[in-house]
């Protein structure tokens, strides 16, 4: 019975509450009450969609990672802009990337990062979570792309999720 009254995911509830305060015009009594109700109801309804709790170990590393990714996004858009505007046709390639991460949340963060950074879009994850299919817009060699992703994104993520 008391299960129903608890917040199964405190972080999700907190983010929902804060987002609701931002969306409504200023903090007022009504927005706080409605925000609390939403922060309670939404995690209860979506409970079944979260197979396991996200297991962050070193949360404080996240801001550093996000800053690095933001910097890479800007660099990435310049290189993609250059490829789009240059007259030569790029050399696209499909690359299978061997994953060392095993946590589903970590894999989805890695896939999103890959999609936003230099010349690569993640296309699919194999059913056994072992390989990631990447489409590169202009690949030198497969190994170069794999090494670059491993060193700049997968290593920091592994440290966060171990």
């Amino acid at each position: 019975m008391f299960d129903r009254l608890s917040f199964p995911q405190p972080w999700l509830s907190l983010i929902l509450f804060a987002t609701w305060q931002i969306l409504s015009d200023g903090v007022s009594g009504g927005s706080v009450v409605l925000g609390l109700i939403l922060a309670w109801v939404i995690p209860q309804i979506t409970h079944g969609f979260w197979p396991e709790r996200p297991a962050f170990v070193k949360t404080w590393r996240m801001p550093v990672y996000i800053l690095r990714v933001l910097k890479d996004i800007i660099v990435a858009s310049f290189s993609v802009a250059w490829l789009i505007l240059s007259p030569r046709t790029p050399r696209p390639a499909f690359i299978s990337y061997p994953l060392t991460l095993d946590h589903p949340l970590a894999i989805s963060i890695l896939a999103s990062t890959i999609s936003l950074t230099p010349g690569t879009v993640s296309a699919d994850v194999s059913d056994d979570n072992q390989t990631l299919l990447i489409h590169a817009l202009d690949a030198g060699s497969d190994q170069e792309v794999i090494d670059a992703i491993y060193n700049s994104y997968e290593k920091p993520l592994m440290e966060m999720f171990k």
């Binding site: 858009s77 993609v80 490829l83 789009i84 296309a123 489409h135």
Partner: peptide, 16 residues
């Protein structure tokens, strides 16, 4: 030229 290369423009340049 093809769908997979077209995917790159909107995901990066347009977002930025």
């Amino acid at each position: 030229p093809d769908f997979y290369t077209r995917l790159h423009g909107p995901t990066k340049a347009t977002t930025v």
